[in-house]
Simulated assay, not measured.
Amino acid sequence: MQDIQSGPSDVALAIDRVGVKGLKAPLTVRDRARGEQHTVASVDLAVDLPAEFKGTHMSRFVEALGQWSGGLDFASCKRLLADLRERLQASSAHARFAFPYFVTRAAPVSGSVGPMHFDCLLDGELSGDKLVFTLRVEVPVMTVCPCSKAISLEGAHSQRALVRIACRSKSFFWIEELVEIAEAAGSSRVYSLLKREDEKFVTEASFANPCFVEDVVRAAAKRLAEDGRFTWFRVECESQESIHNHAAYASIQLPGPAGP
């Protein structure tokens, strides 16, 4: 049958990325407490397309993912990217995995246990001999406003904030490590299950540790910079303000503007 995709393009312009989005696939991720964790990912796959070709072969992306092992580690992702590049005769290949990662969390006083999930995003790109992986984790925390606390006779406004850490590294690290760095930067971590004694503890502990979004990103960035494993990172904090009709935001990116 005629291969329309491999024919000439009406407009001879190269395309940076072409592929498929929103594929669902089972995923196995390393878990610090249990060894491994099974979750489900939304997967985007793409390659570059030279100017002389009209289109890519979309079915080959689905075939490559279907024959992939489903283990999310450096070697496995590299094999998937190399397979995509070979199947589609491309010079670069990109894969993105968006998935929830679950951690069992015990309440601080009662010890009541409940699951917490953290939204993760892994980007992998193979271009020539260069292979780049970027992991992003989104972590909810609680923040108490230092200004509100300082000027109020009673209480202060507090809210949930989202800390996003995206990073690249030269050696292995656990997802849990990024979660812990983000949580330590806020006024308090948040929980899926709290009893009254736990709520009292969280409230008092957070009000003893007020912080702006600026404080959050600086604290997390300091930890990442001092770690030594991370070659690039970006820290963002978005505070879903409880007394304003807007969000407060701050970000730090090191070592510079290059990033995803």
Rank of each mutant, 00 (worst) to 15 (best):
D44N: 15
V40T: 12
D48C: 13
Q67L: 06
D44P: 05
P26R: 10
V18E: 00
G19L: 08
R60N: 04
E63R: 10
K21R: 10
D44L: 11
S42A: 08
G35F: 06
F53D: 08
S59F: 13
A25N: 05
G35A: 08
A51T: 13
G22F: 09
Q67S: 04
S69T: 15
F61M: 13
F61S: 12
R60P: 13
M58H: 02
G19Y: 03
R34Y: 13
K21F: 05
V62D: 08
V20I: 14
P50T: 14
T56E: 02
T56V: 15
S69V: 15
V43K: 02
P50V: 13
A41K: 09
S59T: 14
A46S: 15
V43M: 04
K54H: 11
E36V: 14
K21I: 10
R30K: 01
L49T: 10
P26A: 04
E63M: 12
S42T: 15
R34A: 09
L23G: 02
L45I: 10
P26V: 06
K54Q: 09
T28F: 08
Q37V: 05
S42P: 03
L27N: 04
A51Q: 07
A33M: 03
R60K: 15
R30Q: 06
H57S: 05
H38S: 09
A25C: 00
V18C: 09
A41L: 06
V62I: 15
S42V: 12
T56N: 06
P26S: 07
H38K: 13
Q37T: 13
L65R: 02
Q67F: 02
K54W: 07
W68L: 10
T28A: 01
H38E: 12
R60V: 12
R30V: 00
A64H: 05
P26I: 07
V29H: 03
D48G: 06
A41I: 09
K24W: 07
P26N: 00
V18G: 01
T28W: 02
M58Q: 10
T56C: 15
A46T: 11
S59Q: 11
R34F: 11
A46D: 11
T39W: 03
A51R: 14
F53V: 14
V29D: 02
A25M: 05
A64E: 06
Q37M: 08
V20L: 05
M58S: 06
R32V: 14
A51N: 07
E52N: 13
Q67N: 15
L45M: 03
R32E: 08
G22H: 07
S69I: 15
F61A: 09
D31T: 00
E52H: 15
L23T: 06
V62K: 11
G22E: 01
D48V: 12
F61H: 10
D44T: 07
L65W: 01
K21L: 01
D31Y: 03
R30C: 01
E63C: 06
H38G: 03
G19Q: 01
E36P: 07
T56R: 02
R60S: 02
V47R: 11
Q67W: 02
E52C: 10
V20G: 01
L27T: 03
A25I: 02
A41Q: 03
T39D: 08
R34T: 12
A33H: 05
V43S: 00
G19S: 03
T28R: 11
A46F: 12
D44H: 08
L65E: 00
G66P: 12
R32N: 03
R34Q: 05
G66Q: 12
L27M: 01
E63V: 13
G55L: 09
G22W: 04
K24G: 04
